[in-house]
Amino acid sequence: MELVRTTQRLWGRRSVLATLVVRDLRIRYAQSVLGYVWTVLDPLLMSLIYFVVFVYIFKRGDLGHQPYFLFLIVGLLAWQWFSTVLTDTSRALTGEAKLVRSTNLPREIWVVRVVLSKGVEYLLSLPVLLAFLLFYLVRGEAQLNAWLLLFPVAVALQAVALLGFGLVLAPLTVLVTDMQRVVRIVLRMLFYATPVIYATHLVPAPYDKITWLNPMTGILEMMRAGFFEHDRLPIVWGSVVTAVVVSFVMLLVGVAVFRRLERAVLKEI
């Protein structure tokens, strides 16, 4: 099967993949003192803004689980991983055109590398989440439950989904020049169409099924499952199941599309 063969080829070049990921992280962190701060500052500030807007201006602190600020951070950190990977994979091949043209590596590596290095950045930002969690735990406003086990599963699932999306976007951007703009606009719309700043349970009936199709809906539901009480906003299991299915289907589609377009892409870069 295509997926197995691709995985084997990539596994054979895992040291190169490691080199690329380390390179990305070094550029990100070693170059400036603020490197780390930048990656966590963005989701933190956005959480703060949404918190102020919804809680103090709209007086709607009930849009998500309590504490709402913790709810926002869980969502925005994951969303940052999602959106940076999509923006970056859409230029994964064009941005490294010289390297793609001069090294005979499995071309999928350029996408996998973005997903992984952004994934590591995401994992490195988790201490911030942990800090806020401890803060709310000490104050007795948050509580953990056994569904916390779903968190690592959700992280893995998000990586699968991102690989799928990235493998479609990277070759498409080479062939369709204004794809990057399209991705940017769609991402901005998708942000509000994904339960990042509101709870999945609050999406009204026929639209809830539509938001499920976006795997991020179910992934966020899994990530949040362990942190909050679910008496008011129960876990939407339908979204979780859909996310698992969609993510893996997306990965298969991505591998197939990439294979299909690879020949044409190489002629264009």
Partner: peptide, 22 residues
Amino acid sequence: ELTGGFVGDLTARDNVYLLAGL
């Protein structure tokens, strides 16, 4: 495309390891 694998911001030393690693 000899210089394609180099990154401007890293030192030459790092770049040697990087390109060879690639």
